[in-house]
Every structure is written in structure tokens, then in C-alpha cells.
Simulated assay, not measured.
Amino acid sequence: MGHTFLAPQIVTCANLKGLVMKQLENKVAIVTGGASGIGKAIATLFVKEGAKVVISDLNEELGNKVIKELGSDVAVFVKADSASPEDNKKLVDTAVEKFGALHIAVNNAGIGGEAATVGEMKIESWKKVIDINLNGVFYGMHYQLPEIEKVGGSIINIASILGQVGFANSSAYVAAKHGVVGLTKTAGWEYGTKGVRINAIGPGFISTPLVDNALDKDALAYLETQHAMQRLGKPEEVAELALWLASDKSSFVTGSYYPVDGGYLAK
């Protein structure tokens, strides 16, 4: 009597692709300052992992370029000033109107500001940095939280290593980023039983337009030596942590601060 041999089923990458659930499938996110640098890297990774994203920035040209790259079916751009409460509300309204809900918010928009000592910094320069880098995060959270609370989700505030230590000639930036960390911890406690996790990321010096355009080659080379890895970070390296904090994989994480700094704070 003959034997019947069954050919083994071949599982191809194409087969697996349909079986693997993306980490942010069916989620809706806001990413401020998403036209370049860290914000763009985060928005790009979120879309790759299944999210629909509302991107904001003041640079309309770059913002629309990002939407063209990602696809208008999964991403929308809104020109918005993070220092404006009304613009922050508009972002939340857009997310709900376009995609039906809001699950994730990344408050990333920020500026470096004037380089000067405390005694020499212009009052208007101080106010501008605080308004964008700190007040802007509060305004964002103020409107994001009620919507995210309805469905559960995550808020990620982009602080800085300078949310932990000082840095000469950057008092407004340092003060704002320290404030972001404190705001994050407080909100983490307030919403710990309300289904919203709130965390902060502290990037080291990352190779972005904000850093690269502000400093000359010698200054950049010096900054590299201040990191244990002897290099600047990449926006994509920050985005990976943002993805983890946005996903259910970080379900027991809230009110925390996570540096992505190549060892800068280890000194």
C-alpha cells in the first residue's frame, strides 16, 4: 500500500504580513512640530504601525510635503502655533472630525530660543520660549485629555536632557523643559485611573534642523563628545521610544521621564 505525502505549507512573508497586527492599528494620533526632525520621524513610524495622524507645524510647505509622503488617507496637516490655545483645540477637533477619535498625542513642537545669560536675555525671548515649549504642552494636554479619556490612550511630551540638568546660555529652554517634566509627572498622577498614560521623553542632542542649523561644525563636534556614544542621536531613535510609549506594550508606564541621550546624563 502506498503512502501519501503532504507537501508542507509554505508560509511566505506576504502571508505573515496580513497576520501580524501593527502596534497602533486603528489608533488616531496628533504630532505637533511634525514637519521635520523628531516630529516627522515619530509621525512616519506611527503611520507605518497603523495609526492615522494629524500633523501640525508652522512650516506649511514642509508639512504638506510630509503628508504627500505618508498619504492623505492616513495623515492630515494643520498649520498651527503651539503657543495658541485655539490652535491646540483645532488639532483635537480635526482628529475627531477626520478620523473619529483621539488615542495618542505627541507634544513635540519647540524652539531653541536666544542664547544669552539670564541677566542679558531679552524678556520677549524668555516669554516666547516659555510660551511655545511649556505653555504649548499645557494647552495641548488641556484639549487632548478629555478626548483621549473617552477611549483610553497615551500622551507623550517631548522634553529634553535639559529637563534634568542646566545648560549655560539656555535658561528659558532649560526652565521650560524642566516644567514639561513636572507637568508630565503631575498629569500622570491625575489620570492614572482614567485610562490615560502620560510620559515624557528626554532626547539628547539629536541631528535635526533645530540643532544642525543653529550650530557650526566645531560646536557640533564638541556636542558629540558630551555623549558617551560620542555622536549625536537620530530622530528615528527617539521615534522608537515614542512608539513604545504610545503602544499597549507600555501599559504599566505613566508619569515617567525617559532619556534617549547616548549616555549624556550618565556623566
Results as ranks from 00 to 15, higher is better:
I158A: 08
M141N: 05
V96Q: 01
A221F: 09
G100Q: 07
N107Y: 01
V66G: 05
V31K: 01
A75T: 03
L102F: 12
Q226T: 15
A7P: 01
E69N: 13
C13E: 15
N169C: 08
V78Y: 01
F46Q: 05
K79Q: 15
N26R: 13
G202N: 14
V137Q: 10
S125R: 04
F205P: 13
E60Q: 14
H178K: 10
H103M: 01
N135M: 08
T225S: 13
S171L: 07
G112K: 08
E120H: 12
V53N: 04
S171K: 09
V76N: 14
G112L: 14
E236Q: 12
G37E: 11
L24D: 09
A172I: 00
L19A: 14
Y191L: 12
A115L: 14
T94V: 04
G63V: 13
Q164W: 02
V54C: 02
A101R: 12
K127R: 13
K249R: 14
Y222I: 00
F167A: 10
A176V: 03
I67F: 01
A159G: 07
G34I: 10
L62F: 11
G33N: 08
V137C: 06
I156G: 01
S154Q: 06
L265S: 07
T44L: 06
N213F: 10
L145F: 02
S207C: 08
D87C: 05
V53F: 02
L232E: 11
D248L: 01
E120Y: 11
G136I: 02
E236A: 07
F138W: 14
A95T: 09
S36N: 14
V253E: 01
V47H: 03
L70C: 11
I148K: 01
G33Q: 11
E149Y: 00
L223I: 07
Q230V: 13
G188N: 04
G179P: 03
V31P: 02
A109R: 12
Y191N: 01
H178S: 05
L243Q: 06
S160C: 08
M229G: 05
G166M: 07
P235F: 12
A200I: 05
A95L: 04
T44Y: 01
K27R: 15
A246Q: 09
D57W: 10
G195E: 05
N26A: 10
Q226D: 09
A29Y: 10
R197D: 00
T32S: 13
A221N: 15
Q23G: 00
L243C: 09
S251I: 00
N199W: 07
A242C: 03
A246K: 07
M1F: 13
S170T: 10
G34E: 05
V238K: 03
